[in-house]
Design a protein around this nucleic acid. Structure first.
Lengths: 334, 334
DNA sequence: TAGTTTTGAGTTAGCGTTATCCGATACTGA
DNA sequence: TCAGTATCGGATAACGCTAACTCAAAACTA
């Protein structure tokens, strides 16, 4: 199909149906008072001519794009894929389409993406697990009338928030405490590297210290949130610190990478090394031994983000914070 | 931020800079002849005022949305997630954003999505592994000036094509032949259910018959392309046909589901039951035993689709067909 | 019957850009 | 010096739609 065809406009329909442009517009939008007779007449003509309203023209006057932007760190991580599925399903049900902006865990790209975005492009923004600093993120989000963040706490006026853990790092501390209860003493930590995270291995060590659990900072490693990095960092960590009895991973992917490294190093899991992951992706239940991790409703997190965004887009700027409880699923690695 | 603020327009910049609207427009688009002096002057004012061009207004006159639609059956399937990553990265590099339309393997939803889409919404469409029939799909795609399909052959005038297997079902036949070579005789098939697929278990049986391999049609099952379905259908299949020595799966997810069922039924893999998957997602290499499957460059498939689409969007309507070879990766399940 | 409301549909005026045409300088060469 | 030709930038008219207002005719009301 070439580009040179004539687009069917309201005017064409109006002329053909012998009514004014406004009448056709009203019929198409089901607004205003139109007699049943005229209505069906216009509908028939519009159908016959194959009329489709021009989205840009409509947007220009209504100032609504019917689009929402969803900024994701990495859609090949099943954790985010499932959240995105929830976002898209819910948005779709409400007549919105999703502009996907995948940043590949790259803060520079995330910054570029957010800079490019403005309120003439989308009606709202969902920023999931942002990897950039508050200083960069907040001004960029303030440009938008409706914002929801996932797994990131921002000032209440910026937007609503969906969280899957009460505080950053809360999960890792819980995992370590559980491992301690099961008798492990030398507990390592594969902390996710991201531009933003305020929770560091320093906090990990300190928080657990307060609980009477001593962690050697040398047992903690920073690690990009992908499988390969978990494998590589994990291998180094275990080689340098064979005394480790357990490791807490920042997400399932890196924990699984580390598990592979451990197996290659001859470690027997869980007897020789215990592992706890973080987000219960499908693969985690299917490996041998299956990974102990935290379960949460990822789809529902995404769906809720869409719902909260919709409220804001409809002008309800009440600050809302939804907390999704996560549950430790004990499987074969502990 | 409320909606009531005044948007900075070309007019504001023009007034402030003491030039005409057209001059500002030219500067913003780097078109036309503008003196260096005026150019920087306008740039400074635009920057100070925080001017951002209105995308809808621009689209209305240029007829370009800078958006492409990507229709995906299921982004929680890592196979598609990786393709989507390739699509998005490449589109982004060229200044395009991606409208994600995830259909959750639901043909009705895919039909609805495609019906809603028109050329005033996006500049091009990538339809990945469409689940609807040619009769439905072709007219819907013809509305668009630029189309690329992934894993779906259509008339050459509809759009370009990216394929990861030479013919539908080619992979399954290859897998069966390989299993036969390794001594397996009673080979089952978990065929993916989709609205469209022209390759049926009937073809599977017939094609292999021609190769001298006899398959009992009762060993073939249709199965939705998700893990759970593979597990359930697999369990039924293995219970009803304990004589099976091997099964070919339509994709890795269902094969893995079947593998779980087989293990629960006490089958030893690969001695007691051999398995071949289809798309080498990460999880397949991490389970025990690791899955024998077909490897292909999923990211590159998506990236290529974007590149082919770009060519069409730039007016090069040459039909192109890219074939990505896939390679059998022999691991622990055969 | 005259006044009032309701109903259905037309008219006008943008929304914020860019395409296109056109005019005013300034520069060129003979 | 004077046409000829770059060079720069303004004026105008769309693009396709909807908000807001207007108004005639029909349908009530007292």
């Amino acid at each position: 199909m070439t580009k040179e065809q004539h687009r069917v406009t309201l005017e064409d329909v109006a002329r053909e149906a012998g009514v004014s442009i406004m009448t056709v517009s009203r019929v198409m939008n089901n607004t205003g008072r139109i007699s049943e007779e005229t209505r069906t007449q216009v509908r028939v003509v519009a159908e016959r001519l194959g009329y489709r309203p021009n989205r840009a023209a409509r947007t220009l006057v209504t100032k609504r794009t019917m689009l929402i932007a969803c900024i994701m760190p990495d859609i090949t991580n099943p954790y985010f894929a499932e959240i995105l599925q929830g976002v898209e399903d819910t948005a779709w049900q409400e007549g919105y389409n999703v502009l996907l902006m995948n940043t590949n865990e790259n803060p520079d790209r995330e910054y570029a993406v957010l800079s490019q975005l403005d309120d003439s492009t989308v009606d709202g923004v969902i920023a999931c697990s942002s990897r950039i600093s508050d200083e960069q993120l907040i001004p960029l989000l303030r440009k938008h009338p409706a914002v929801v963040t996932i797994n990131r706490v921002l000032p209440k006026d910026v937007g609503s928030i969906v969280l899957s853990q009460r505080h950053i790092g809360h999960r890792a501390v819980l995992a370590a405490k559980y491992l301690y209860q099961t008798g492990r003493r030398r507990i390592g930590y594969l902390q996710l590297v991201r531009g933003s995270s305020s929770f560091t291995s320093f906090d990990f060590v300190k928080t657990l210290e307060a609980e009477g659990i001593t962690i050697d900072p040398a047992w903690c490693r920073r690690c990009p949130p992908v499988w390969k990095a978990g494998y590589e960092q994990g291998k180094m960590l275990l080689e340098e610190h064979p005394e480790l009895e357990a490791v807490v991973g920042g997400n399932d992917l890196v924990t699984l990478g580390l598990m592979r490294a451990a197996i290659e190093l001859g470690r027997k899991i869980p007897d020789n090394l215990a592992l706890v992951g973080a987000d219960d992706i499908l693969i985690s239940s299917q490996v041998t031994p299956p990974l102990t991790t935290f379960r949460m409703d990822k789809y529902e997190i995404g769906a809720m983000a869409s719902r909260l965004l919709l409220l804001r887009m409809q002008g309800d700027y009440t600050y809302r914070e939804m907390f999704f409880p996560e549950e430790l699923v004990i499987r074969g690695t502990t």
